[in-house]
């Protein structure tokens, strides 16, 4: 490909995206939600949840987390079935009800691709979520292996088995000592 045109620059989502992106509260039909799985969806049903923090550890309430994942069979379904979108609440909290993805069969551990948008972020950030109960697959994962040891933990969602199912905790720190690993990809 000959690169002849320049990429259109990114800009922040600003504070007022909710009525367009997560408009249920405004009586409008959302294009995507944070509930990716129905009762019929095959696989282990899980919740992924966390809080998005700024550099002083304050929760961010005007943030959107988007995810893209394979199904339990490791395949990406056609359409938008593997896509989720959740705005954080006043406590900076987000969650997705989904299924645990299978591996792609390419040597990578099961994971979920994550994009973070917020007021105050002029460009979005990419990260990815791995699962704490996939220790062997994580140890062999080439992306996790490329991350310095002391930062790898920011990409591992910690599993807790609670009444109702498995919950994986994945806090996102935009900045600071615990800054989440973000990727250039």
């Amino acid at each position: 490909m000959t690169q002849t045109l320049k990429q259109t620059p990114s800009q922040t989502v600003g504070p007022y995206f909710a009525y367009a992106w997560t408009p249920e509260l405004y009586g409008r039909r959302p294009l995507a939600t944070n509930r990716l799985a129905t009762h019929e969806t095959p696989g282990e049903h899980i919740r992924v949840e966390g809080v998005v923090y700024d550099g002083e550890g304050a929760p961010i309430r005007d943030c959107v987390v988007e995810i893209w994942q394979a199904g339990a069979d490791g395949k990406h379904a056609p359409g938008a079935a593997g896509f989720g979108r959740c705005g954080t609440n006043d406590a900076g909290y987000y969650f997705f009800d989904t299924v645990k993805p299978g591996g792609h069969g390419d040597g990578q551990a099961p994971h979920i691709a994550v994009t973070v948008f917020a007021r105050g972020m002029l460009s979005h950030a990419f990260t990815r979520l791995h699962f704490s109960d996939e220790a062997a697959a994580n140890a062999a994962d080439p992306v996790l292996s490329s991350v310095p040891d002391d930062r790898r933990g920011t990409l591992i969602a910690q599993r807790a088995d609670v009444p109702g199912g498995a919950v994986y905790r994945f806090d996102i720190h935009l900045q600071g000592d615990q800054e989440t690993v973000f990727f250039d990809c």
Partner: peptide, 11 residues
């Protein structure tokens, strides 16, 4: 306070 400060990791 909302800007990642550590280098992005190539993926």
């Amino acid at each position: 306070l909302r800007s990642p400060r550590k280098p992005l990791i190539p993926m």
